[in-house]
Design a protein around this nucleic acid. Sequence first.
DNA 1: ATCACTGCATTAGTTGGGCTAATTATGTAG
DNA 2: CTACATAATTAGCCCAACTAATGCAGTGAT
Lengths: 311, 311
Amino acid sequence: MQLETLKLFCDAVRLRSISRGAAESGVTQSAASQAIQQLETELDVQLLDRSRRPLQPTQEGRGFYEACRALLAGFERARGDLARSRQRVEGTVRVAAIYSVGLHDMSRHMQPFMAMHPHARVLLECLHPHKVVEAVLADEADLGILSYPPTSRALQVLPLREEPMVLVCHPSHRLARRRVAEAADLQGERFVAFDHDLPIRRAIDGALRRAGVRVEVVMQFDNIETIKQAIAIAAGVSILPRPAVAKEVGIRTLGAVPLAIGRLVRPIAIIHRKGKRLPPAVDRFIDVLRRAGDGEVPGGSRTAFDQAARP
Amino acid sequence: MQLETLKLFCDAVRLRSISRGAAESGVTQSAASQAIQQLETELDVQLLDRSRRPLQPTQEGRGFYEACRALLAGFERARGDLARSRQRVEGTVRVAAIYSVGLHDMSRHMQPFMAMHPHARVLLECLHPHKVVEAVLADEADLGILSYPPTSRALQVLPLREEPMVLVCHPSHRLARRRVAEAADLQGERFVAFDHDLPIRRAIDGALRRAGVRVEVVMQFDNIETIKQAIAIAAGVSILPRPAVAKEVGIRTLGAVPLAIGRLVRPIAIIHRKGKRLPPAVDRFIDVLRRAGDGEVPGGSRTAFDQAARP
DNA sequence: ATCACTGCATTAGTTGGGCTAATTATGTAG
DNA sequence: CTACATAATTAGCCCAACTAATGCAGTGAT
């Protein structure tokens, strides 16, 4: 059953002529005649009264005509909705990021991107790390941005940058004015840590263990902001990615000291679902991130340490 | 654009599988896969996300799925309406008859017909003669029953019977007790006639003229009932079809006398639109009319005149 | 990681449905 | 009755859609 056939029938009724209806659809009178006859056979009902001219629908044909018009209109509407939806979705970049990247970082990149692509729309959602992965897998986000990206068959990982980790302490702390902190300096320090279930915690714990240092964990939180607040009230020291404390260091509410403990970095990556070819808008957004995305605040001075830490 | 394709898509979404959807429609997985791909190409949109199993519709696919379901449901409803309408219409016999036939005559035939065909429905409408023709031509009635049927290219005429015409007068009239009325008996009689624009008037006028009789037309009406009333108040005599006055003659409110003027009959015929093959119910109704339809009230005595007048 | 399993895509080959062109039939108007 | 317009019919061609077979990818197991 073809929609074109229904359209031919509707046009024939509307124009009171099979020929004119056929012309409307760009087919011959013969094709239209055959199609409508076949329709009548299929439905086992006489739709047109051909014994009187101009052509008139039968009783049954009249009712079917109205139904067909509604059907065709419904299909055209659906097609239109689809086109509109496609445009809206294709121009949208849904990003799921962890808090510590999303808030500082993304806002900087979103504005230039929007300027380059005025038709595009960027939706940023800040989530806990595992929720970011979930959102990408469930196709609720086109991109995920997080640290310590998980390896998964369904995920494509694009390394974005590696943030150097620094010792963060209260400005009045005894280590605050050191040029560099050695492993031994941390021995027995009161430490504000990340929650156990976060990869960054495991990375820091491993580095400290390898350096033979034991710290006294006095608090643990699942996000950087809270850790910074704890340090600001002199509850202890911590090890945090440098970009995350750049602002506080700048206004001297926190102290940051480069660490001489292994190569302690926080890898940031973009993830997206594997196999799925990305919409153009998303591709371009990735370009913007990877090109400009070296993690430092524009105009911020770069230390020799930062340079070295980059891959 | 085929409805079957939309159904394949809907089934695939509903069952979360192209294979199962294909099986539902009795085609191979390959056919369904190709059809849905073609649909996506045609609409230029990705409807299904095949990179994750079980199969899931995309954002756009979800919306289109809902629209398609509505479309398919709408079509099935239209098809159902059509079937029901067809049955209702096919079992219906719409009859348009002139008053003088419809009331006396049809009611007798309708009951036997209804008994023979319990599913059928008979709609009887009594109209003025020219309205009967109009109703048949406009396909508002399947059959028309009238006297002096018009010849028309668009109409098929089926002669039904010829009703003998008799002189009708008040029971106290001087001619009421005659066995037969000659032409001369009518000379100068006060006459209640049919309207000029009725064929029956022309038939009677012609017969009288050929017999060399002149009557004095004192009244004229467009229907038999009114003429009978006029005669009943002794306003004059008239010439009417015998079956139309059978009842009044039986109860002695009118007198009827056979006429020896030419072969004066009122031909009754069934008309229907030419070319159009009639629904079975209508065909059978015609059979009933033509077989039983000799125009006499059942049990009514038949005169030698009646016998002779029949073709 | 590897393997087996399931399900979709792809390809090649065949067939029927739908189209055109030409002709015939039919309804309508002058 | 004739002329005209329009629909049905016929013959023939061609593409679209199907099947069968195979390749490929996602998924969950050991």
